[in-house]
């Protein structure tokens, strides 16, 4: 293999030449990141403005035009109950993004605060937080989600809260780890020497430095939760119909995979692109904030 020369000799040079983020080759980082960010922006805009777009009613059934292939009156075809797929995918994207945003937001807000506090204070507080996180993480997450949705019902708000709850322990861990790194820094010691209160230090010195890695975590959590909601749908416990998320549309589209694969593939492609975009952006953010971390 010719490779070792490329590694052994130029490596020393190139490393000092410019700091390169690990994990992704430089060029891919550039183009990929921007394409991903563009897709996310478009998806958000389209989903937010879904009601303003000239789309057919996503819930209107045309029972005699079921499972129509793309083309003609329906740009992307119809689903198994005769509803326009383009409209449904856009509205489904909206629901998925809503769940995918609100759940991690709740998790990061709650878990991030707890983790930050734990990392800063250390001692008993830290031990208590980490034990709490460990216990929640030891619980099989899908089972917890199942039991909670079976008990509380599958209303959208329940799903958001339940998936958020499941993400809290991971948020605690990440926030604590990052806080530990930051809390050692000189400017924190300096602030404390100047007599700043703990709360002030946490808010003004630590929080700004924690935000970027937490944002990366947030985006990864978004991707995971969008996929997890789909998993719940596969067990019949996703968002309640006729509301659809990308995951529940894929689950429903399975029944027609053979005769009308577009019913599953249209939402699948949308979910895939969205999740991929989130992963790419998250990775880029992570590389920027901590070059030694790279992709994990």
């Amino acid at each position: 293999m010719a490779a070792p020369e490329a590694v052994a000799v130029p490596a020393a040079d190139t490393d000092t030449a410019r700091p390169r983020p690990r994990g992704l080759p430089w060029r891919l980082y550039g183009a990929g990141f921007w394409i991903a960010a563009a897709w996310l922006a478009v998806a958000l805009a389209v989903a937010a403005g879904a009601d303003l777009l000239p789309l057919p009613d996503p819930d209107k059934m045309d029972l005699f035009a079921r499972a129509q292939p793309p083309g003609g009156a329906h740009v992307l075809g119809t689903d198994a109950l005769g509803r326009d797929l383009l409209a449904r995918v856009i509205h489904g994207l909206r629901v998925s993004l809503a769940v995918g945003f609100l759940s991690p937001f709740m998790a990061v807000a709650l878990g991030g605060a707890l983790g930050l506090w734990a990392g800063y204070r250390g001692g008993r507080v830290e031990w208590a937080m980490m034990s709490l996180a460990d216990v929640l993480l030891a619980f099989p997450p899908l089972v917890l989600a199942l039991v909670l949705t079976a008990y509380f019902g599958t209303a959208l708000i329940n799903i958001i809260l339940i998936l958020g709850l499941l993400t809290v322990p991971a948020a605690i861990r990440v926030a604590r780890a990052v806080t530990l790194a930051v809390a050692q820094q000189e400017y924190v010691t300096a602030a404390r020497a100047l007599g700043a209160s703990d709360l002030r230090i946490m808010l003004r010195e630590i929080l700004p430095n924690v935000i970027v890695p937490m944002t990366a975590f947030f985006m990864v959590a978004m991707a995971v939760i969008i996929v997890a909601e789909g998993a719940l749908s596969f067990l019949g416990l996703g968002v309640p119909p006729p509301m659809a998320s990308l995951g529940s549309m894929i689950a429903a589209g399975r029944n027609n995979l053979e005769s009308a694969p577009h019913i599953a593939f249209v939402p699948a492609v949308a979910m895939f692109l969205t999740v991929l975009a989130l992963n790419l952006v998250a990775d880029a953010l992570q590389s920027r904030s901590d070059p030694s971390q790279g992709a994990a």
């Binding site: 789909g230 596969f234 895939f272 991929l276 992963n279």
Partner: peptide, 10 residues
């Protein structure tokens, strides 16, 4: 990256 973004169920 692509495979990471695929749900196992799909």
């Amino acid at each position: 990256f692509g495979m990471l973004s695929m749900p196992p169920y799909l």
